[in-house]
Design a protein around this nucleic acid. Structure first.
Lengths: 146, 146
DNA sequence: TATCAATTATTAGTGTGACAACTAATTTCG
DNA sequence: CGAAATTAGTTGTCACACTAATAATTGATA
């Protein structure tokens, strides 16, 4: 295999991921959403399934627990979410959206979808399928266990 | 278009980019390379073309100038690179590798290529072509100017 | 030539990511 | 039962990304 050639995907992958994030963040700023991309991603997860523990959210979002703790702190400071005691396990905390949090998700969802779609101009349905398949294959190839 | 479906690529892209970086970083740690991935990427660029300004390196690496300043500070602290005055423009600084810096790149290059290849198990040459094409299309779709 | 605009690099501030170490609570098992 | 291991969450540290603001220098132009 031509290692020189293959080993350069990482640069393109990294810069594209950064640009996707940056583009969305700029759009958020212009729309005065008062949220970062990562804060939004956690809000979205909570909207789809309320009352999860932070551990569960961390797994679902692919973030580690310290990172999640900090994002949740910010969401709470913004009064978009709240921590609630777990009824059976005092180590855990259930997170729930506040009314404001739910309203925020409902208000912004359509705009966020539009922002996300921009990336797919000039690309086909096949491209989308291949792209997600390849990304997931790479993700699994580099799994911690292996 | 099914916006709901298409708008979820960003999560997969982000988490895969993070895992690629993390996998390489862990391999660097185990090999006691004493470098981060991003420090390595700058060293590599300097090895290929010595005596560039920070502005040029920033463009080539896809990093912004503040980020580059910090990474270069670290490389200099590690005695792998040095700043040299630009002969014609006193605003600029030429960066050059030290002997140690060049030796480091030569020493680690083969190992880094091996690490990078791991991601491509179970994937074909076509996948590689499609992957880079799609990434670059997305990157251009989200160009600042547009 | 004197001023103003553009360019290069830096600094400060905020947010995030990874890792290690820690607390508190719970579970396991001798 | 009680000590040890495990688990959930937090805090601290370092590195990086991005923005805005600044200093120093250069170039353009009136």
């Amino acid at each position: 295999m031509l290692k020189e050639k293959y080993s350069q995907y990482s640069f393109i992958l990294d810069r594209t991921a950064r640009r996707v994030k940056q583009y969305a963040q700029n759009s958020f700023l212009q729309g005065a959403f008062d949220l970062t991309i990562d804060q939004w991603s956690i809000l979205k997860i909570l909207y789809e399934e309320d009352a999860m523990t932070q551990k569960e959210i961390a797994e679902k979002s692919g973030k580690d627990q310290p990172t999640l703790t900090r994002i949740v702190d910010i969401l709470i400071k913004k009064r978009l979410a709240q921590r609630v005691e777990h009824p059976e396990d005092r180590r855990c905390l259930h997170l729930k959206l506040t009314k404001e949090g739910k309203a925020k998700v409902e208000e912004l969802s359509p705009a966020v979808k539009e922002i996300r779609m921009k990336a797919w101009e000039n690309l086909s349905e096949d491209d989308f399928e291949n792209f997600t398949r390849i990304l997931n294959t790479i993700y699994n190839n580099l799994n911690q266990q292996s």
